[in-house]
Design a protein around this nucleic acid. Structure first.
Lengths: 128, 128
DNA sequence: ATCTGTCTACGATGTCCTTCGTAATTTTCG
DNA sequence: CGAAAATTACGAAGGACATCGTAGACAGAT
């Protein structure tokens, strides 16, 4: 235990870019950040993320290419569990209520989400 | 803008207690924390939360009673939006997939969640 | 009156976050 | 070759986070 601290703001920014791109050099990551911090700032953050075991790097020419070592699903699971537990009293239902009120959903998306719930209900049914 | 920074770990712990209890004195909040930090630590955190405008206090006998000034829905909305945007590429569907795989859901809960989605779809339909 | 327990106020501390400057290295280009 | 550009390494610095110790105020009991 004790391994899973929440991402800080900047760490999340950077991990988000790596998840989206698959991998990235310092320059590539920096170019994707909305407010562009100094080059060495991004480098430093990546070095710290590497110390924490959240990314690794390999050499690519002169530069390093960084790869994420945690999956978005895993990170998202931790983050969601934390929020549901601490803010929504453990209720996935309340969290979903807020989630759907946050942003408009397309009709197809709603259908797929209902299908997800059906699958979940099915798995539960089988378990008994 | 710039008002909504994510809660830190301890801040969230404490806000969570206040949301659950409705309000609390330092002692009451402290008693609810899993690992009990020193009394003055909890007091200090509440004072800092007050500086940030997240709680207020009123006198109650000799002690202060602290009240949350942000609603869990509001805080949860920010937190969910942050996670969905940065980790799930803005997809509520992916977030829900992870949410339902995190913990088992009761059948009635699944039904109510589907109803929530229907309502959301309805609102969308009306909008056009 | 004084002692004891509970409370707030204040300041110190150590760690982490985030920023970046500077130096050293290497490649590339004129 | 020598200058310029891109890169990593290192360390410093300011601020926030989270911890607590100590001091002072006050109420209640003896």
């Amino acid at each position: 235990m004790g391994d899973s601290a929440a991402f800080t703001e900047r760490e999340l920014d950077i991990m988000s870019v790596l998840w989206r791109l698959g991998s990235g050099t310092v320059s590539e990551v920096r170019a994707e950040l909305a407010d562009q911090p100094g080059y060495t700032t991004v480098l430093k953050m990546l070095q710290i993320l590497e110390e924490k075991g959240l990314v690794r790097h390999e050499e690519e020419g002169r530069a390093y290419r960084y790869h994420p070592l945690v999956e978005p699903d895993e990170a998202g699971g931790h983050a969601l569990r934390r929020i549901v537990d601490k803010i929504f009293h453990g209720s996935a239902e309340l969290a979903l209520a807020r989630l759907v009120s946050e942003r408009p959903l397309r009709a197809e998306e709603v259908e797929r989400m209902k299908a997800l719930l059906d699958e979940a209900a099915l798995r539960e049914g089988e378990a008994e």
